[in-house]
Design a protein around this nucleic acid. Sequence first.
RNA 1: GGGUCGUUAGCUCAGUUGGUUUAGAGCGCUGCCUUGACAGGGCAGAGGUCACUGGUUCGAAUCCAGUACGACCCACCA
Length: 917
Amino acid sequence: MSLSTHYNPKETESKWYAHWESKNYFHSEPDDREPFTIVIPPPNVTGVLHMGHMLNNTIQDILIRHARLKGKNACWVPGTDHASIATEAKVVKKLREQGIKKSDLTREEFLKHAFAWKDEYGGIILDQLKKLGASCDWQRTRFTMEESLSKAVIQVFVDLYKKGKIYRKLRMTNWDVEALTALSNEEVIHNDETIPLYHLRYKIEGTEDEYINIATVRPETIMADTAIAVHPDDPRFKHLVGKKALIPLINRPIPIIQDEYVDMEFGQGALKITPAHDPNDYEIGMRHGLEVIDSLNANGTLNEKAQILVGEDRFVARKKIKKLLEESGNLIEVENYTTSIGRSERTDAVVEPRLTMQWYVSMSEFAATGLEAVKSGDVKFYPEHMWNMYYQWLNEDNIRDWCISRQLWWGQQIPAWYIKTADGGRLKSDGEELVFVGATIEEALADAKKETGNNSLTINDLERDEDVVDTWFSSWLWPISVFDGFEKQDELKYYYPTNTLVTGWDIIFFWVARMIMAGYEWSEELLGKDLKGKQPFNDVYFTGMVRDNKRRKMSKSLGNSPDALKLIENYGADGVRFGMLSCASAGNDIIFDAPFDPETKQTKNESKLCEQGRNFCNKMWNALKLIKGWEIADTEQPKINELAVRWIKDKTDMVMADIEKNFESYRLSDALMNLYQLIWGDFCSWYLEMIKPAFISEGKSEPLDRKTYEATIEVYEKLMIALHPFMPFVTEEIWHQLRNRKEGNDCIIQHFPQAGRVDQSLISKVEKAKDAISKIRESRSSNGISPRESLNLFVENTQGATALFKIDGIKEMLIKLGNLSCLTLTDSEPANTVAFLSGTEKYFLELNIEIDVEAEIKRLEEEKKYLEGFINSVQKKLGNERFVSGAPAAVVEKERQKLADGLERLRLIDETLKQLK
RNA sequence: GGGUCGUUAGCUCAGUUGGUUUAGAGCGCUGCCUUGACAGGGCAGAGGUCACUGGUUCGAAUCCAGUACGACCCACCA
């Protein structure tokens, strides 16, 4: 069988993925092995794979495959998130395109459409993960809105309510006027925007031409003003305090009050107070007992309380009122002003502060638990400094209660009921609506009967809260609920706590912190004394954000993200995995190198790093081709091969120790580089050249001895297993090409190579030989001698040289890789040669050409200069009494050795220079 | 306003708790090498006063302080 010159990832990848799945290698069931568990950060069910997912999931797959090769019971649970706002927005948009309005549908009808949408588009992203090679246990695929997970949400809600940790309250919240729902603070993205700042004057009541001036960016809200505030210490306004000002256009009088919140320096020094439309104004209003006038509808249009411009959208109203104010003479000036504007993360609508009744989770206890979990080391962060950000979110000064209700349909409906009254309202007590929380309506009814003493109540008298809970209120249970842990604990007992969470730092509070809190809240209740730890995961590996070469976050709207699937098509999944990883160290944002095409204004689906990954696959493929092309004979193993085999085995073992260390500290890109250099550099460039049989004639070469061949295959196998977590497809393919395998003997389930004992002195001797070979090549190169021309080489007969060449195979190695006709120890400097140093050995290469003595002298003098500088620095160190007495003996000894070597080298150069001159 | 991270070769980054000769990798660049595994390749080479200023130390890219620049997070912003 002949192999093509280029590795073909396409066929190979689909072939092996199907094979692994058919063998059920990704599936995990509890058994007596040690588990290694990862739960996927569930992507949005309607999402498509982007670069962030690629990075994230590549890392998870590496950890899972590594654990599997280490003999652990590896379990990677995949799934998707229902992403309430984003998905609902998409569904609404699609229905609108079909001419269906959400408001014309019942809740049930809408959900039917939403689920139909989910069934059609949901899961695309999971199929895309398969292309990447993700070895998820697909039989365990979960969805945050499926029955079991929804039941858990309800159970947890009821539990927290009973524990007094959930409450309902009227508060100023962030309102998304497009999605028509409240948002949590974290769902609002603040960015600086430049907008007009309007300076207005309000006439003082009872005067003809006295005014008080204010500045506002929201003139359309003036009709809801209920006061003007000035600073108590501000002399400019002292005489106005207690008087009333008239709101322009509608002439409603409002009091002028004093409050320390006002910044005297800003704008006009006086502040209009609009309690319904600004959180700070609301606070001030509360302090002064001001009326709250809400002049905006939920959809952002002005209502009848505004008296004018009723029905206009707030931004249209802003433009129109500017004109009206101008006409009425109340507009003083308009200036451009840069301020931060909050927009909805999901719909990009400018967020409106709005006073609404919402459900909250009380966070102070949760936050303390969350902090302690990380502080105590139960949960470890990689990189560690993420603690700072975590602390900043959770410390008692910053923590805020979590608004969990959303005015949407796509999500788990809040399990709370109210008692309907005859007039269509809800039964109140002390002005507050009576509410009953229970897992079922019957439970709520029982409570209602008890509380009201009215035993004639039936379920028909109850109406359920319309709202659903925040998506994160289901995903914070993910590490428990994916194992159905709230219903039964058999699997939870085995898999919990999970091992590593791999996620972006941007959701450290949204998700990571809350999962930790949920873990501490419920795991012990569920697992009791069998608990292995309350934390949902032991380690959190934070990936960076993937950015473009201008350091902008990659996003669809900017067009600066390459198409993830196209990249896989172009470079193979292994190539892309290599590319992603080689620029990703934990916690640092990664700058992905895809070039920008100014013509299409899109990022090209090209990447130098992925190309390098593809080339690496090709390199390994061709090494395989070389080995498989050799004829094997039962001949005696030549000394050079024996040495080469010993060296590559030791070198491999040595690197395996580094790799293991790097895995332990999540230095995955370092581990990959270790392997890259070992395979490409040591194995291909050096080892294979050392053992490569001599060429005889066209298409024919000497046979290779069987012993070397077997050893080579063994080493190559080891390399493939070690590389498998990073590049699973190419390694599986080569694994099968290396030998005829029995059914089920696959790379994915081998044992990860152990680091063994290593003969350091052997390794360093071969390194010396390699150095001498490079120097021979350099001499050729700089003197214009072809590598094909065999040359004579002499070595100065010293103790060091004898020791080196005593090693079986070293001499042959130099002859073979340096293309020498002979290598001779000599006591005198041979004529017509160029000299070079390797270590403290002095070599003389016979070039068979006229030697340019001048150039040679120049070269040596440069080397001498460098050496003198070096010796000088070492001598200075050793001449320092405090160094010699203060530094560890080993360090001093090393310096002495450095000096001795340096001096010896200097002597040798001087010697040659003298001869040349 | 509070905080975090970063600044090392033209570019993207390592540098594992201060000592591996006077700092490494990949890409890019330069020279040479094409019928013999691989041009998606080979060999060799050029390229860095480790942002700056002080300090600690026998010794600093590495530790400390300050400065500058950049990125980000939180809060506030009429």
